[in-house]
């Protein structure tokens, strides 16, 4: 360490001290911009938001109300419904990961036309959620093309976005369609590290495709799969607002509410910023749990190697 406790035998002590001070300060000066950005733009608003969640709205604006906002949240069936939908998203996660995984496998195994598929699959990932939402709102309309198609084969029309039991699955489905291209690219990158000799050996032994996938490809890609799980989860929790806004507006009857949509309604439409802060804090805590899981998963897979 250059800035240790050197005894004062320097011939020009003052200049040396100044240089030593400069050297000691340099790292702090260099990291200051990054630290300032994090503290001023991330930590301070975060603490402020948590703080506001303990104040009141309307008449009690600016007064401390303790945990009242959290009690209100837990008593609001709409917010509880939004949290339940978060649970549903977690339950649907394996499907959202399996789809790009399977399609990437087919591309890797060079099915006919795999080059075209590779670019076509990625295409929706560059579209804005609002545009995707508008397209699917038209396709899934009650008098839209999908119901017309079903009608032509004699099946009754389904109110895809107006039936509370169906709507959330449609929105999640569209979200998966719109974003799986990114996961697919990650999977393809993972395949690049796969040991082809294992695949060849399995083929020579006469293993069928399902067995190859289950016993060779899945174990070989375990780290990639874990990574895609975590990123897909975060994407589902934080970037479905645009789709919800365009496709269902949270309806019917609040069936497609997610916490971020609830926060927006409370803050922007109902003038209750403190309650919105409390909801945002709850969403933040959910994300912290997801983030910690991510860290532990990645650390564990790191140890395996």
């Amino acid at each position: 360490m250059p800035t240790g406790s050197t005894p004062a035998i320097d011939p020009v002590p003052r200049r040396a001290t100044r240089r030593r001070n400069a050297e000691r300060l340099a790292p702090y000066v260099l990291v200051a911009p990054a630290v300032l950005v994090v503290v001023v733009l991330r930590l301070y608003p975060l603490v402020l938001g948590v703080n506001f969640s303990f104040t009141g709205d309307g008449d009690s604006d600016g007064t401390a109300v303790g945990l009242d906002n959290y009690v209100t949240l837990m008593g609001d069936p709409l917010f509880v419904g939004a949290l339940r939908n978060v649970g549903l998203l977690v339950a649907l996660l394996p499907v959202a990961v399996a789809i790009p995984g399977l399609l990437a496998t087919f591309i890797y195994l060079r099915v006919p036309g795999h080059r075209i598929f590779r670019s076509v699959y990625f295409f929706p990932a560059v579209l804005s959620p609002v545009i995707v939402g508008a397209i699917f709102t038209l396709l899934l309309a009650f008098d839209g093309p999908l119901n017309a198609l079903l009608g032509s084969v004699g099946l009754g029309p389904v109110d895809w976005l107006g039936d509370p039991d169906v709507a959330i699955f449609m929105v999640v489905g569209v979200h998966v369609w719109a974003t799986f291209g990114m996961a697919l690219v990650v999977f393809l990158a993972g395949f690049a590290t796969l040991d082809t000799s294992l695949l060849d050996a399995a083929r020579i032994d006469g293993a069928a495709l399902p067995r190859i996938i289950w016993h060779v490809i899945v174990p070989g890609l375990s780290r990639t799969i874990q990574f895609v799980f975590v990123t897909t989860m975060i994407g589902m929790l934080t970037s479905m607002f645009g789709l919800l806004y365009v496709m269902t507006s949270g309806g019917p009857g609040g069936a497609t509410y997610l916490p971020e949509y609830y926060i927006w309604i409370q803050q922007g439409q109902l003038n209750r910023p403190a309650l919105a802060s409390a909801a945002a804090t709850v969403l933040f805590l959910v994300m912290v749990v997801v983030g910690l899981l991510q860290v532990s998963v990645l650390r564990r897979s790191g140890r395996e190697d």
């Binding site: 604006d61 401390a64 109300v65 403190a274 919105a276």
Partner: peptide
Amino acid sequence: VLAAGLTVAGCGSAAG
């Protein structure tokens, strides 16, 4: 940071 957050909790106005 957390302690600081909690000690200032519930002051100021969310409405600005």
